[in-house]
Write a protein that binds this DNA or RNA. Sequence first.
DNA 1: AGTGTTGGTCACAAATTGATACCACCCTAT
DNA 2: ATAGGGTGGTATCAATTTGTGACCAACACT
Lengths: 125, 125
Amino acid sequence: MTLSNMDFPTPSKDADCRVVREILDRIADKWSLYIFVALRDGPVRFNELRRQIDGISQRMLTITLRQLERDGLISRTLFPTIPPRVDYELTAVGRTLLAPVMALVIWADSNRDVIEEARQRYDAS
Amino acid sequence: MTLSNMDFPTPSKDADCRVVREILDRIADKWSLYIFVALRDGPVRFNELRRQIDGISQRMLTITLRQLERDGLISRTLFPTIPPRVDYELTAVGRTLLAPVMALVIWADSNRDVIEEARQRYDAS
DNA sequence: AGTGTTGGTCACAAATTGATACCACCCTAT
DNA sequence: ATAGGGTGGTATCAATTTGTGACCAACACT
């Protein structure tokens, strides 16, 4: 009970907490992070995203992009050419999320050796 | 091709890239983030974690804690009392990850209204 | 005429996660 | 004495999520 009211910053209401959870679950899902990284330098088309994000299926790319669009973090622009062209781009709000996301990516990159060693130690014992 | 070599910071080798992906996948999975937040003020026992992290199953808590322990981000201390007591705590490395993680949490908290509105706009159209 | 590109959707299979039961051990209240 | 609860798990099976491959229309290139 001592910490249950302090789990998250200013959880004045349960509803707020639930929304924060929903947002974090979206950011921290399997693919959103990589979409953010791929979009950090400007608009990218659908199939270019698919090529950049290794292992993502067309299905999950579509679904994840739709969810991020719904949250107002990325925008979708359809150019009705033949063949069609669809650009995805970070919105102003989305760009403010880029700093924390890149901080995570940079942390992961800086600590890969440390973590690799920890894994080998754990697996050896 | 222009960006494929710059997807992540200093991706000097494919192997490095793969490790960074593995680390990010661990951090950004469904529960790790919340375990980090719960452990930010010091050691917490297993069942206290379970109570703090709403919705997590005992199974996923065990599995996620093991993975984080394997990566050297948290430590597990067993006190052989009756009933047994197991403390989980962030390691020194784990604590360095706390800053980027909390930046994400704070971002999510600060932007919940903006995102809620974006969702309503999207769902209405 | 065949092959490839675009950005999707759909149905089904595979992988991941959740729910429930169970375990040994003790403490407390009845 | 016995029923119920807490400790930190594991095992099994169901439910949910994700991946796989096929298919689409409209064109360009060969």
